[in-house]
Design a protein around this nucleic acid. Structure first.
Lengths: 147, 147
DNA sequence: CTTGCTGTAACTATTGTGGTTACAGCTATA
DNA sequence: TATAGCTGTAACCACAATAGTTACAGCAAG
């Protein structure tokens, strides 16, 4: 199955935060929801996870959300982990309880484990190598291509 | 979300086929289901996909399944693709229809695309580098560790 | 004190997964 | 040629995750 769009939505939201101007209008969950094209509650749930991961600070009642770090100090892996699309080391699900009386059954899990772990790490290392800063830069450069 | 266990089950089944002895009893879907600890229909559905991908040959009514290639010529990426856990280039799902009137909204998809593609490729290349032969070798060596 | 926003619970529809029963169709073999 | 046994597949179920929605309590700032 596919990795939840929570991840891409989170990057979208963080990009909005990274690009927000000080003197700009307040970025409320409703505004962000408009840009993402979803429901404000979906955004608020997401912000809850990003907050829990220490990536953003949300002003409780008055509204407004801000990054706690520079965009260059936030990797996509941080985001990926924050939204918990996949638990640590669990990208692949492996069938449990294979027949222990069978040669293959009792060894398949450990035989596969190292490879699956490496595959997952390979994916995560790519995400670790890209920062929010790079994403917003890419957004601006995509924008320029259109002119 | 996690990648379906169809993948690990497929590797399990293919390992059984790779290790089967000529003069051994017939490997029916029921036998394989026993080793995997699931239902025979689940196995037959899976074999249908592996057959479609040209990895195995199934004898229709009399029973019995066989690899069409040497285990060394089957990579885990072949298996991964065969069971269609993830469509080509679609490991990450990205929210569609973001607000086009917004700078971030109209550029986020193309800004993320290359990175997500690279991440997925990284994962797949690890799988491409491991063959069924290596898996069965690992199974035997895990077995030996237990003695 | 009121306005407006966040935080969260609760419910829904949709989708993918994996298990199960049932049965048609075929093939090797007796 | 009859039959036993296996495959192929449809149909259904339970379960879990996702994403959208309504509703509302709580609170902070003006």
């Amino acid at each position: 199955m596919q990795i939840s769009s929570r991840f891409s939505v989170a990057v979208h939201v963080l990009s909005l935060l990274a690009l927000q101007q000080e003197d700009d209008v307040l970025l409320t969950s409703e505004r962000m929801a408009g840009s993402v094209n979803t429901n404000p509650v979906v955004i608020r749930r997401l912000l809850g996870q990003l907050k829990k991961a220490g990536l953003v600070e949300v002003r409780p009642a008055s509204g407004g959300t801000f990054l706690t770090r520079q965009p260059a100090a936030i990797s996509l892996l941080d985001v990926y982990r924050a939204v918990e699309v996949v638990g640590e080391g669990q990208l692949f699900s492996v069938h449990d309880k294979p027949l222990q009386a069978c040669l293959v059954g009792r060894n398949i899990q450990s035989a596969l484990d190292a490879t699956l772990q490496r595959a997952q790490n390979a994916l995560e290392q790519v995400l670790a190598g890209v920062t929010l800063q790079q994403v917003t830069t890419e957004i601006m450069s995509q924008e320029n291509l259109k002119n």
